[in-house]
Design a protein around this nucleic acid. Structure first.
Lengths: 197, 197
DNA sequence: GTAACACCATACGCCACCGTATTGACAAGC
DNA sequence: GCTTGTCAATACGGTGGCGTATGGTGTTAC
């Protein structure tokens, strides 16, 4: 009797590297949250046993840390660096708000991590990422002639709105909006939180 | 050797009722999240063993459900009914935003529940509570002559801002603001999200 | 003052996950 | 072709929680 292989994600024939485990961890994280990133389930999913895992990582914590740092780096590169090039601050903000519609995976991950902020490994990563993003917003508002305090408060407000919206949509699933509704909402947010040119 | 009694919360001498367990569950929930609401730890905290628990409740799930329904009821009574009496909608919104400064426990609980929205017992309760609150906001904006769509979008935005702020402050602890900073932020939010009279 | 009830203790079996130890298989380098 | 290094299987012990079974004790009703 064959060993009842689970849905076998990897193309088999190859062996696993640390990066494979990290990628798998992020997949599981996006799908089922931090608690689901456990070594035995992940091993099953990758078609091996945990005997393999403990060769690559000393502990579950270490995997989590490595995976999150991988995510943090990727996040910076794909989301923010492209935006730095837009010179007009109002336009930069608008683009940030709108591009946020795509890239669902990034939001899903961020949203799951929001639910695990009490975890000692998650907390510092999220603190860095969120701090950077809020700072990005603040600088844009500064360029729009907001006072220091107003810029800070508006940045906080805008980012809070992002975070809250994520939770309400992705987690609570209060209203699965149509594409038009969603665009209308984003339009409303832009009008409300970004001063007209 | 005495049985190493834990910090003994109840005034002893009395025995426990279902309500005591529910209250204890909410305490633990506020302090350490949904996952921490486990029967053996809770029993230890209450100075009994789980032999007691299973007399009052058939399962951990049942306790959680009872506790959350208790919270839902209390929330309605203490937060929203008082506000219904304020007739001027702009004033009502302002008061909602400002009173939200107090009542920390309510926010802490809501914030912890936000992190457990995938839990089948938590989800429906949170859906009801959030839906009610957003509807409350929407009606206020309607009274301020917002179009139906604008009112909906603004309500979503305002509530998202609330939810996000909760997570950023209570969970991420990005910035522990001073009382003045906090008031200034609330002022900024009021100016931004509520049209001037 | 005893019987019934309400609450609690103890002890047990079960499961899921963590981490360790030991051995095995396969490839590359010499 | 034999050794070394890399990845993996197996088997084990430990922890912490769930739920059950059964018996015990204080309180109340009569």
């Amino acid at each position: 009797m064959p060993p009842l292989q689970s849905a076998d994600v990897r193309a088999d024939r190859t062996r696993l590297s640390s990066a494979d485990w990290e990628a798998g961890a992020l997949d599981l994280l996006a799908e089922q949250g931090v608690a689901a990133v456990a070594v035995e389930p992940l091993a099953r999913r990758l078609g091996v046993t945990k005997g393999s895992f403990y060769w690559h990582f000393p502990s579950r914590e270490a995997l989590l840390k490595a995976a999150l740092e991988r995510w943090e780096k990727l996040d910076e590169e794909t989301v923010f660096e492209p935006l730095e090039e837009i010179v007009d601050p109002a336009e930069r903000l608008r683009e940030l708000f709108v591009r946020t519609s795509k890239e669902m995976r990034s939001h899903v991950l961020y949203s799951e991590l929001l639910k695990a902020l009490d975890h000692p490994v998650v907390q510092p990563v999220m603190a860095r990422v969120s701090q950077r993003r809020i700072h990005f917003l603040m600088q844009a508002y500064r360029s729009l002639n907001f006072s220091r305090k107003d810029a800070m408060n508006r940045a906080r407000l805008a980012y809070s709105a992002y975070v809250g919206f994520l939770q309400l949509m992705l987690q609570l699933k209060l209203t699965r909006m149509s594409a038009e509704e969603f665009d209308a909402y984003v339009g409303h947010v832009v009008e409300t939180l970004i001063p007209a040119a």
